[in-house]
């Protein structure tokens, strides 16, 4: 559009004699008409482009909404930490793993198979979903990574993808287990609504140790999970736990002993482990009744009386009576 250049226009004007001829006026008029047409076409083009852009923006907004809806649905299948790691680009989705010290938690419902056999599928689904929702809410509150649900069983770990350090991860895991046990007591009357005669009870097992954590499977279908001996031990501890009990290994106990009241329980023979495994129970109702301070070797334990069995209480009573008698005799002799 050199024709629009003011210098060119000035030259055109300068070239016109003082009294322009008809031909010269016609030439200028034609140029003017052409420019007018060009301007009109440009405006039309700009309008069309604007319309197209608006349409593209609306389509993009619609697509974005669709993606958001899809990712919301997908989020339900993933642990929130894993979801945010993937969707915020922090974790590359590939078949890779790393070895880390994690605290692994297993739980399952006592006699679930027997219970489920006597229930209608719909009732069972509602009951199980209610239970899993309650437990999941607690797990998420404590920052757990929910590995998977296997029927009524829950597999959870602490320490990946986020970790507060091995000690804090272990403490959070045990505190989560205690909160789960407490919640189950709070909702113990609910199970009748699902047609269960007795309240649900669960077993829980916890172990802190080195595990391999990452994506396993194939390039087309992978699971983010943990594997290794540490995971197996947590599962064995869960199997060995009594109904309502939180049973942990010495490795977890060593991390939580200053924070959580624990009682040493019988050693267990765990399949796949050469040596017997020392076990410790995390006490749930610490405020319920009085406690006994005991020194056993180098371990200092505070045992709430409520967790001791009648036999254990009688044995302690007998020991104390003997001790008191001995102390009395010593005092008299002096």
């Amino acid at each position: 559009m050199d024709d629009l250049d003011p210098d060119v226009i000035q030259k055109l004007i300068a070239d016109i004699p003082n009294e322009p001829t008809r031909l010269e006026i016609e030439k200028v008029f034609r140029e003017f008409q052409r420019l007018k047409k060009t301007l009109a076409r440009l405006v039309k083009h700009a309008d069309r482009t604007e319309k197209k852009l608006e349409q593209a923006a609306a389509e993009a907004a619609e697509k974005s909404q669709e993606v958001q809806e899809l990712s919301k649905q997908l989020a339900k299948y993933l642990s929130p930490q894993i979801y945010s790691q993937i969707f915020e680009g922090g974790q590359h989705v590939s078949l890779s793993s790393s070895r880390k010290k994690l605290t692994v938690f297993f739980s399952d419902i006592v006699d679930f198979t027997k219970t489920s056999d006597s229930m209608e599928s719909e009732e069972l689904t509602t009951m199980l979903n209610f239970y899993l929702t309650e437990m999941t809410n607690i797990a998420l509150e404590y920052g757990a990574t929910i590995d998977k649900y296997v029927g009524d069983a829950i597999v959870i770990f602490f320490g990946d993808p986020e970790s507060l350090g091995v000690k804090e991860d272990a403490i959070r895991c045990v505190q989560m287990a205690r909160a789960m046990a407490t919640r189950l007591k709070q909702i113990s009357n609910t199970w009748q609504d699902f047609g269960l005669e007795r309240p649900l009870q669960i077993r829980m097992g916890i172990h802190t140790g080195y595990c391999t954590v990452g994506n396993f499977g194939s390039e087309n279908r992978m699971d983010y999970t943990v594997i290794g001996n540490g995971v197996n031990l947590a599962a064995r501890l869960e199997s060995a736990a009594k109904p309502g009990q939180i049973l942990m290994s010495f490795d977890t106990f060593a991390q939580v002993k200053d924070t959580v009241t624990c009682v040493e329980r019988d050693q267990i023979q765990a399949k796949g482990f050469a040596d017997d495994v020392r076990t410790f129970e995390a006490v749930v109702d610490e405020d319920n009744g009085s406690s006994l301070p005991l020194n056993i070797g180098q371990n200092q334990l505070t045992i709430p009386v409520s967790v001791l069995s009648l036999g254990e209480l009688r044995a302690i009573q007998k020991s104390l009576q003997i001790a008191l008698e001995e102390i009395g005799k010593n005092i008299e002799a002096r």
Binding site: M1, R34, T38, R41, L42, H45, A46, T49
Partner: peptide
Amino acid sequence: FNSSSAMFLFDLFN
């Protein structure tokens, strides 16, 4: 084509 390219096309067409 964008608007400045439209200008180029009009110049060429003329």
